[in-house]
Write a protein that binds this DNA or RNA. Structure first.
Length: 570
RNA sequence: CGGUGAUUAGCGCAGCUUGGUAGCGCACUUGGUUUGGGUCCAAGGGGUCGCAAGUUCGAAUCUUGCAUCACCGACCA
């Protein structure tokens, strides 16, 4: 490719809208352009990278025996009604009507469509297991699109779905896909970790996420400092404190706490450690027919935070987790938020394991501007249940039993699930078994965020000059950078000869034939992250040499022109 | 959804307080100059000042409404 016939679109200045480094560099290097919030055009250089990632994913899927198909992005809402997700998925599901006023959705994922397909196409156990994938544009109406293509509304995703007669077979495929994912991220040259995960709205049992480690990541990952345990904080179990609860030593007493609203104000006001206080959150419970929606109290140690996912998994709690309104709080606790406590509450009380381990603690007194001190479970408050409802924090014992928790940020680039029977049941997807009986299938699903990987790769591979692409996904393998080609016939001739040779050898080469100063060319190619620069100038041509610069290591060396092609022999 | 801020040329910004018909840097065009790390000089082109209404002789500037974008929050007990 000659730059004079290409759309470089590099920028000197960073657009103000870009927050994270990958977004800034993707704009500056001319990879993407914003069209609207969360919607991007991929420019030629960006598309080259995207296609490389896509092809690696495709190759590894095919190597693993997964078969490619393509499903429509627009899906009938009926299918989503059949699975029940039309109500569960929430406002991220973009709904639309066609000219006949029929309801459709823009597909954020394709479980419904593929389950319907397989249900129609497969009728015998002999056709199983079946594993299908597609690489396709998805749409999720994100609450807050940000960080460029890292969290955009429209994005490219590889999604695969497997169908099995039984869970052992599913488990074998799951492990096989796990390995295939590791191969993909290895080939992409990324520093990543598989971590235990929650399966979210897609549903199901076993689940792993693949995270690229980066400070700009949006997920907290809990690692053990003594084993290879890794889990999303959403999922990481907070163990009950070891040992038995200390005995009560104080009597329950009421203290006036005027204008104390937050837990930190409370600890400050009473001069106590936040860890000896509890906070009580009032949330909506699950609705039962004919009854008003119940209010549930969740009790946490003052320094801990509620884990929405864990709370939502409890049978009594409504999904999504919703906090009670001010009116509901007054009705349930006869005080305002800020003074709620578990003592003498007439609503169900769920206590986190760590809060349940406290004795002589401080809590709201369910009366404005008053708190209790010296509170003790079973003596002052008897009707409660204990659950794990908080986020783990650094220093907690690891749930694997070895070491303590360390928390790092990660970018979720892959997610595999064992779905089980959820969709097969809803969509009546079954086959005849050997004994001639109909049996519902069990499923797995496996996603990779192709466009997000491009951003994640930049987060991990850049310097002050620009992007440093891993070789496998660089838009070009080599750039030819001639010094003042328009002034020197032999520079021009050497550059053109090398360009032709590289092209004929099938190497992706970009030939900078612009009439630009050297500094401009260097800056552009370093910004775009081409791994190898071939610098051709009068300076070295007398010795039949050119300069070779490695973008990743920064190393420069002189090389005989006749040896250059050997650099690209694999 | 809540809070905050922004919206003036392709990009980054100034001008607004104190109303008088728009400017700087980069980019772009032309000519010259320079040529191994974002040259320098000169001359140009390019703007419904986010949209709508209002106040005024006159609005980028003041008022009101709306839209879009961004950031923060949605963990408050």
């Amino acid at each position: 490719m000659r730059t004079s016939q290409y759309l470089l679109s590099t920028l000197k200045e960073t657009p103000a809208s870009a927050e994270v480094i990958s977004h800034q560099l993707m704009l500056r290097a001319g990879l993407v352009r914003n069209v609207a919030s969360g919607l991007y055009t991929w420019l030629p250089t960006g598309l080259r990278v995207l296609k490389k990632v896509e092809n690696i994913v495709r190759e590894e899927m095919e190597r693993a025996g997964v078969i490619e198909i393509s499903m429509p992005m627009v899906q009938p809402a009926d299918l989503w009604a059949e699975s029940g997700r039309i109500d569960d998925y929430g406002p991220e599901l973009l709904r639309l009507k066609d000219r006949h006023n029929r309801d459709f959705v823009l597909g954020p994922t394709h479980e419904e469509v593929i389950t319907k397909l397989v249900s129609n196409e497969i009728s015998s156990y002999k056709q199983l297991p079946l594993n299908l994938f597609q690489i396709q544009t998805k749409f999720r109406d994100e609450i807050r699109p940000r960080f460029g293509v890292m969290r955009s509304r429209e994005f490219l995703m590889k999604d695969a779905y497997s169908f099995h007669l039984d869970d052992e077979c599913l488990d074998r495929t799951y492990k096989m896909m796990f390995d295939a994912y590791c191969r993909i991220f290895d080939r992409l040259g990324l520093n990543y970790r598989p971590v235990l995960a929650d399966s979210g709205s897609i549903g199901g049992a076993k689940s792993h996420e693949f995270h690229v480690l980066a400070d700009s990541g949006e997920d907290d990952i809990a690692f053990s400092d003594a084993s290879d345990f890794a889990a999303n904080v959403e999922k990481a179990e907070a163990l009950a404190p070891s040992g038995s609860r200390p005995d009560a030593t104080q009597a329950l007493s009421t203290v006036e706490t005027p204008n104390v609203k937050t837990i930190n104000e409370l600890a400050e006001f009473l001069k106590v450690d936040v860890k000896t206080t509890v906070k009580t959150l009032l949330v909506l419970g699950k609705e039962t027919e004919g009854q008003t929606q119940p209010i549930i109290a969740l009790v946490l140690r003052g320094d801990h935070q509620i884990n929405n996912i864990k709370a939502e998994h409890l049978d009594q709690i409504a999904t999504p987790l919703t906090f009670a309104t001010d009116e509901q709080v007054v009705a349930a606790a006869s005080c305002n938020i800020g003074s709620i406590g578990p003592v003498n509450l007439s609503i169900p009380v769920i206590v986190d394991r760590s809060a349940a381990h406290l004795s002589d603690f401080v809590c709201g007194a369910n009366s404005n501007d008053q708190h209790f001190t010296g509170v003790n479970w079973d003596r002052d408050c008897t009707d409660y249940t204990v659950e794990d409802i908080r986020n783990v924090v650094e220093g907690d014992p690891s749930p694997c039993g070895q070491g303590n928790i360390v928390i790092k940020r990660g970018i979720e680039v892959g997610h595999i699930f064992q779905l089980g029977g959820k969709y097969a049941e809803a969509m009546k997807c079954g086959v005849l078994t050997e004994s001639g009986k109909n049996k519902l299938l069990t499923m797995g699903c496996y996603g990779i965020g192709v466009s997000r990987i491009v951003a994640a790769a930049i987060e991990q591979n850049h310097d002050k000059y620009g992007i440093k692409w891993p070789k496998a996904i660089a838009p070009f393998q080599v750039a030819i950078v001639p010094m003042n080609m328009h002034k020197s016939a032999r520079v021009k001739e050497t550059a053109q000869t090398l360009y032709t040779q590289l092209q004929q050898a099938g190497i992706e080469v970009i030939f900078d034939d612009r009439k630009e100063r050297p500094g401009v060319m260097f800056a552009d190619h370093e910004l775009m992250g081409t791994p190898v620069l071939l610098i051709i100038g009068e300076r070295n041509l007398d010795e039949q040499k050119i300069e070779v610069k490695n973008r990743i290591t920064g190393e420069k060396s002189l090389m005989l022109i006749s040896d250059v092609m050997s650099l690209f022999k694999d």
